[in-house]
């Protein structure tokens, strides 16, 4: 019943360099709260490798476009920037993107004085916060071994993740579309691809070994679960069935998705999935 094509675990990342994979950094998030939209930028802490503003801005643009239908026209937006230094020009560039999506930048939430000054000067209302980032679900980056219970709400994307695009989310990611070669999906939770997975997917990116990757067609260039990495088998099957990738005792394995939950269970003591007898 269970097919487990030869996906072998090639390597386990054990050295210090693993921490950047596991110390998951969330990027821009959008939440809807009390009739307004919160646009949350990653804190400096969540971003060990400082991203250039142009990339953050690109991502804001992309996310806003993605979720265009989720708010009424002219909805107010609060930009949550935590301890990040944001200048006038950057505020303006965010405003432009929001205006295009029929949103209105109304407030800035920050814990940093200079940012607050810039925002006030530009005429936005300022909500000052003393905590680093009160909205972050992960105030403290967890140590790599602790599975993380708290996940953000799933991120649902309805389009193709094309080459060069990297989607990161501190929860589960659901994609209705393909992940093309060169495209990357990184989730703290599970990854669902309702389409072909031909790029790279990383589930449990903060270290949760229970996380899984599911795709209608597994044609990935690489899979990662927690801190394990797998490359595709030499020979791809001709007839694809929906498959599920999971951590077994020996590393990342693939199984037919339809009966996986009936045939496997997660053993907490081993921190991996095992076959039921």
């Amino acid at each position: 019943m269970i097919i487990e094509p030869g996906v072998s675990m090639d390597e386990t990342i054990e050295d210090a360099s693993a921490s950047h994979l596991v110390g998951f950094c969330s990027q821009v998030q959008i939440k809807i709260e009390d009739n307004r939209v919160l646009l949350i930028l990653p804190t400096a802490e969540e971003m060990p490798l400082e991203l250039p503003w142009s990339e953050i801005w690109q991502e804001i643009k992309y996310l806003v476009k993605q979720r265009e239908q989720s708010w009424p026209a002219n909805a107010a937006v609060c930009l949550v920037v935590g301890d990040r230094l944001i200048d006038n020009r950057q505020l303006q560039s965010v405003e432009e993107v929001l205006t295009e999506a029929k949103l209105r930048l109304s407030a800035i939430r920050t814990s940093r004085r200079q940012t607050a000054v810039a925002a006030a000067t530009a005429g936005y209302s300022v909500e000052q916060n003393l905590l680093p980032n009160p909205l972050s679900l992960f105030d403290v980056p967890p140590p790599s071994t602790e599975p993380v219970e708290m996940l953000a709400e799933p991120l649902y994307l309805k389009n193709t993740v094309r080459s060069g695009l990297e989607v990161r989310h501190p929860g589960t990611i659901i994609i209705l579309g393909d992940v093309n070669p060169g495209g990357t999906v990184i989730a703290a939770g599970d990854v669902f691809v309702w389409g072909r997975l031909r790029g790279m997917a990383h589930a449990g990116a903060r270290g949760n070994q229970m996380s899984q990757i599911m795709a209608l067609q597994m044609e990935f260039t690489q899979l990662r679960i927690a801190n394990s990495v797998a490359r595709p088998p030499q020979k791809l099957p001709h007839n694809f069935v929906p498959e599920i990738a999971f951590m077994s005792k020996t590393g990342i394995n693939l199984a037919r998705a339809s009966d996986f939950m009936k045939t496997h269970s997660f053993l907490l003591s081993e921190d991996c999935w095992v076959k039921k007898n």
Partner: peptide, 13 residues
């Protein structure tokens, strides 16, 4: 083709 894919993504955005 990979680069074309990237460019299509950018154009769509």
């Amino acid at each position: 083709v990979r680069d074309a894919d990237r460019v299509i993504g950018l154009l769509e955005a």
